[in-house]
C-alpha cells in the first residue's frame, strides 16, 4: 500500500465513521452491544457447576447436621411438654387430696425379677413410711413396701403379692383384689352379685391401709363357673409401664 493510498483509505474510514457516528447520535444504534464475556460462558458454566457441586455437598452436610440437631431438640421439647402435662395433673391431685405426703419420681424398676416393684426418689426424709399408698392421677399404683432415707420401693397392684380391699363402685359390692401379673383379679364376691363388664373398682378402705374411694381399674370379665365366688378380672387404670411420678398418701388411721 503506497503512502498516498493509505492516507486516502484513512480519510475514507474516518469519513465513513463520522457519518456513522452522526447517524447513531440522532437515531438508534446500528449494531447491538456484543458481550464478549458470552464467549466464555461454557467455561464459566463448567466452573460454576464444579463450584456448586462442592458447595451443595457442603450445604447438604450442614443441613443434615441441622436436621439432626433440630429433631433432637424437638424430641426434647416434646418430652418437656409431656412432663409438664403429667406434673400439672399430679399437682391437681395434690390440691385435691390433703393426705399426700410426697410426690416422687420413678427412678428404677423392681429390685428382683420376682417382684413387680418400682423405686422412687423420695424416702423417710420426705415423710414416707411403710404401707403408705402410691397414686397417680389415673388411680392406685401400689403401696410402699420398703423405705430408705432418700428412696422407697413400691409394690405394684399387679404383683401377685399385692392385695387390697375393694368395692364395685356401681353396686357397692365388696371383695379383695389381688395382682395377677398383667392385670388383677377380685375374689370373694358371691355368685349372686351382679358385676358388669366396665364397672369401676375402687378401694373400700376396710383394710386400714388404703384410703377409701381411690379408683383402681375397670372390670374386664367375670367368671362364675368355679366354686362359690366369682372371679373378676380387672384392668388397672394406671398401666405399670407408664408410671413416671407417683403421689404417696398417708395410711388410713
Amino acid at each position: 500500500m503506497t503512502k498516498k493510498s493509505s492516507i486516502i483509505s484513512l480519510i475514507l474510514i474516518i469519513t465513513c465513521c463520522i457519518f456513522l457516528i452522526i447517524y447513531q447520535s440522532k437515531n438508534d444504534r446500528i449494531l447491538p452491544k456484543f458481550y464478549f464475556s458470552q464467549l466464555l460462558n461454557p467455561l464459566i458454566l463448567i466452573k460454576d457447576s464444579i463450584k456448586d457441586f462442592f458447595l451443595l455437598k457442603q450445604e447438604n452436610a450442614q443441613l443434615k447436621k441441622q436436621i439432626f440437631e433440630l429433631s433432637l431438640r424437638e424430641n426434647y421439647y416434646s418430652s418437656l411438654i409431656q412432663e409438664n402435662k403429667r406434673l400439672k395433673e399430679i399437682l391437681t391431685l395434690k390440691e385435691q387430696r390433703k393426705d399426700i405426703v410426697a410426690i416422687g419420681k420413678v427412678i428404677s424398676k423392681g429390685s428382683t425379677k420376682y417382684l413387680k416393684t418400682i423405686w422412687i426418689d423420695k424416702g423417710s426424709e420426705h415423710g414416707i413410711k411403710k404401707d403408705y399408698s402410691a397414686l397417680t392421677p389415673n388411680g392406685l399404683v401400689g403401696k410402699v413396701v420398703s423405705v430408705y432415707p432418700e428412696s422407697s420401693e413400691i409394690l405394684l397392684i399387679t404383683d401377685p403379692n399385692f392385695s387390697v380391699s375393694v368395692r364395685i363402685q356401681r353396686s357397692r359390692t365388696e371383695g379383695v383384689l389381688n395382682g395377677k401379673g398383667d392385670n388383677c383379679i377380685i375374689k370373694y364376691i358371691p355368685l349372686e352379685e351382679e358385676v358388669l363388664v366396665g364397672d369401676r373398682v375402687i378401694t373400700s378402705g376396710l383394710d386400714g391401709i388404703f384410703p377409701e374411694g381411690i379408683i383402681i381399674g375397670a372390670v374386664k370379665s367375670t367368671d362364675k363357673r368355679n366354686g362359690l365366688f366369682q372371679i373378676i378380672e380387672v384392668i388397672p387404670m394406671q398401666p405399670d409401664n407408664k408410671i413416671e411420678e407417683v403421689a404417696i398418701v398417708k395410711r388410713e388411721k
Partner: peptide, 22 residues
C-alpha cells in the same frame, strides 16, 4: 466498538493512532 454500543469512535481512534504509529 462491538463491545460498546456505538460503532465508529474506536475505528477512528485506532485507525488514526495506527496510521501515526506506522
Amino acid at each position: 466498538d462491538l463491545g460498546q454500543e456505538i460503532t465508529g469512535p474506536a475505528i477512528i481512534s485506532k485507525s488514526l493512532t495506527g496510521f501515526i504509529l506506522v
